[in-house]
Amino acid sequence: MAIYAVWNNKGGVGKSYLTFQIASEYARQHPDKRILVVDVCPQANASSMILGGIEDGEVALAEIHQGNPRRTIAGYIDDRILSPYLNPNTGASFVTQAQTYNAQVPPNLYLVVGDEQLELQASRVLAATNPGPQDAWRIVHTWLSDMINDVAVSWNDPDITVFIDCNPSFSIYTELAMSAADRMLIPFSADGSSKRAVRAVLTLVYGIARQAGQQQSEFFRNVTRYRMALPEIYMYIGNRLTQMNQSSATAFKTVVNEIGDEIYAVWQANANHFCIHPTGNATPTSKRTFKAMFQYEVNDANSASVVSGACGIPISSMHSGSSRVLGKRVTVNQSQLDKQVPNIVSLVAAIE
């Protein structure tokens, strides 16, 4: 089993869009495997796209949210709040096969649906970490791991692949995701604020200080205290990079390289925070070979990206032509698909 957390401590980098595209494409490339997306972002944008997009997906979300029992991540969290220190083994009952709502996604793609009620539950999740048993913090931080293991046991399949779409802030749900994941995919956009956000990821999760005396996060201190494993960095992904003209492309490339240099410096000092890809390639020995293994780029497909997310159609399955989005006709050109589809296909081919 491989569990990937998709996270950056910044909104607007296309985290949920990438989760939708990566999980859908991974399911397409691996038709004999079951793929599970766990949506712990209260906005549930990845769930909306997977279930059919801005219209059909929202209808599906409303139907699932109104169900009794509530077959969402918030429904599972309710179960855990009632049984914070003993696994109720109910995780599999909160899984939805995505194709039952959206015929555009592969049949082997499954989803634990996101839910805005996570925001209302957050204080009760935090309350469960203290007081309680001596290791209450550790037990609560295994809730997502318990859920994923419940699903694997129910399916009698230890070889599932899981993608967790995280809350952009470093919330309690992000901490649970970091505790459950084996590997980390870090999306970023090519701007200065994204560079600062990548630095925050390295500090909050891995305790890598940028200034002398900088305080470490409570999460990192407790992970160290309980000797828990951290996810290893598997990729950092420049998302929606522009190809509009040479000057803008050069400026974007400069920021991408600066972020790459930042992460390469972490590799040089703490290579144990990274997961060497199981592709037969040797362990990187230079900045060039490091970036070849860990740095990926996804070009902006403009209208094609909008239609893909709005209609819940994985971009590698899209065709050029006219589509209706919110009552308006939007034209997708083949040139737009050619910008992004090869990026998504090659990126996913590098994921174990």
Rank of each mutant, 00 (worst) to 15 (best):
M1S: 13
A2E: 13
W7T: 05
N9S: 13
N9V: 09
F20W: 10
R28C: 00
Q29L: 12
H30C: 02
I35T: 03
L36Q: 01
P42W: 05
A46G: 06
S47M: 08
G57M: 04
V59F: 03
N68V: 00
D78F: 00
P84K: 05
T96V: 14
P107W: 02
Y110T: 00
L111Y: 10
V113C: 12
L120W: 11
A122H: 06
A128L: 04
D135C: 01
D135H: 15
I139T: 09
I139A: 05
P158G: 03
V162A: 02
I164N: 07
D165F: 01
D165I: 05
C166R: 07
Y173T: 07
T174D: 06
D182Y: 02
S194N: 15
R196E: 12
V198M: 11
I208H: 15
Q211K: 14
Q211F: 12
A212D: 15
S217R: 03
S217L: 06
R225W: 08
M228E: 13
A229H: 04
E232C: 13
M235R: 15
M235V: 03
G238A: 15
T242I: 01
S248T: 14
A249D: 09
T250W: 12
A251R: 07
T254A: 14
T254P: 01
A265Y: 08
Q268N: 14
A269S: 10
I276Y: 09
P278M: 10
P278Y: 03
T279M: 02
T285V: 10
K287Y: 13
E297S: 14
V298A: 08
V298Q: 03
S308Q: 07
S308Y: 01
A310G: 05
C311Y: 03
C311H: 06
P314F: 05
S317F: 10
M318W: 01
G321D: 06
S322G: 05
G327F: 05
R329Y: 11
T331W: 08
Q334N: 15
K339H: 12
V341R: 07
V341E: 03
S346F: 04
V348L: 01
